[in-house]
Design a protein around this nucleic acid. Structure first.
Lengths: 232, 232
DNA sequence: GGCATATTAAGTGCATGCAGTTTTGGAAGA
DNA sequence: TCTTCCAAAACTGCATGCACTTAATATGCC
């Protein structure tokens, strides 16, 4: 799992936080997995103290759950908690999109338009990975344009927490072209300067993703109890 | 400053986090103050290790700022960062209020109405402390009614970060009665079930508070550099 | 043979020690 | 008197040790 990085006196903890959160977000560490301090200390070649600190950070991010005297596990989410998180995401993205409509620079407007236009190719190709990457860039551009760093931070943090549970959304048949159509509507409303519509459309867009993700997760049982193994 | 609590094997760290965040939120610890691990360890009768963990939590909450190899200080906010936080707060409260309008139970509706009606007395009395307490209850009721625990968590966290900088808002002349009028409009729209209007009104309400707070902070210079002392 | 209890092993949480960095205080020079 | 530089003190960040809690395994009892 990922490389450990020595030779950098600057920040031992931050590097480990980065490494472990990558493992969780990317799915290399499955929800429910137990993380033991001892083992991590050996893996990263440090003592248990900075590992404990790392766990604190991951816990603050919501990526791991701490059980007193019983260590930490990669967070698992009950279905309601998951839809709750998605609801927050929908509202945050909606707010950011509305603000972006009002504050977007000419340059950003053009980049958005271009980016969206070119994404047609990705839809044709059908590579879920490529489209997922584009999708994040698309949303990130809107985040930037909103010029609201705190809201953006909250949105990025929430997206990070959701990452382990939505990786597979584009594998659902037709999802990519549906997603593209939703983007199309959003881009049009942005160019028209209709901020309120943009907010509404973006909320719907995220809600759609939420519904799909919930379905998927319900199937795979990635949420409840400690089902870290039996994938069936 | 506040009492240290011994005799509770359960959670040493959580107690200290509570105690220190209270000190910061309530203003007993002024933004810019340096917190040294050694001193805190002695004050709470523990070693530096749990204090370090405490600092991690406070830092995650945004209440303190960590400077590598140089300890932590109670967070200070540049004016733009402050208005940025308020903008996030406005959007979060707006979303929660809109959802609350759609999901509020009959009982909650009645409680809100009653609570608001009785707050007239507080406006007459003019006690800023009493009104501030009521104000928080008013907003909390709306948070609860929204039934969106993640959004609520984000809103409460953001409010906590803002607390040190907005304590004095109701001391501005006329602010209490203005606040009451804004509440009045919000309550009416909620009872009318006009969710979109509620969202708009709540956003304006928070934006108003933001403007006042910004003014106040600009006067007192509670934000920039380390001006923890000279109150003038 | 199945269930409850005791014993052992593992792991967490806090204390303490040590090395490296920052800060402070003062002395030397201009 | 003010500036610059240096040395000592203070403090942070990580390693390590120890007590206590929890989990796992074995043993006795029904």
């Amino acid at each position: 799992m990922s490389k450990d990085q020595s030779s950098r006196k600057g920040n031992v903890v931050d590097g480990i936080v980065q490494s472990l959160s990558d493992d969780i977000v990317s799915g290399r560490l499955v929800p429910g997995t137990k993380l033991d301090a001892q083992g991590m200390a050996e893996r990263f070649g440090v003592s248990r103290t900075p590992i404990r600190e790392t766990f604190g950070h991951l816990s603050a991010m919501g990526l791991v759950t701490h059980r007193p005297n019983r260590g930490v596990i990669v967070s698992t989410l009950m279905p309601e908690a998951l839809s709750d998180l998605y609801e927050a995401m929908a509202e945050l993205e909606s707010s950011l999109a509305r603000l972006a409509t009002l504050r977007m620079s000419r340059d950003q407007r053009e980049r958005l338009q271009l980016m969206h236009k070119e994404s047609v190719h990705l839809v044709r190709d059908g590579s879920t990975e490529a489209y997922a990457r584009f999708n994040q860039e698309f949303h990130d551009l809107i985040f930037e344009a909103a010029q609201s760093s705190q809201l953006q931070e909250l949105a990025v943090a929430t997206r990070t927490r959701l990452a382990p549970f939505r990786r597979a959304q584009f594998k659902v048949s037709n999802r990519i072209s549906k997603s593209w159509e939703e983007h199309e509507a959003i881009v049009r409303a942005i160019l028209a300067g209709d901020a309120d519509s943009v907010g509404r459309l973006m909320r719907l867009h995220v809600q759609t993703v939420s519904a799909i993700s919930a379905e998927f997760v319900a199937d795979r049982r990635m949420t409840g109890a400690a089902s870290a193994k039996g994938e069936s």
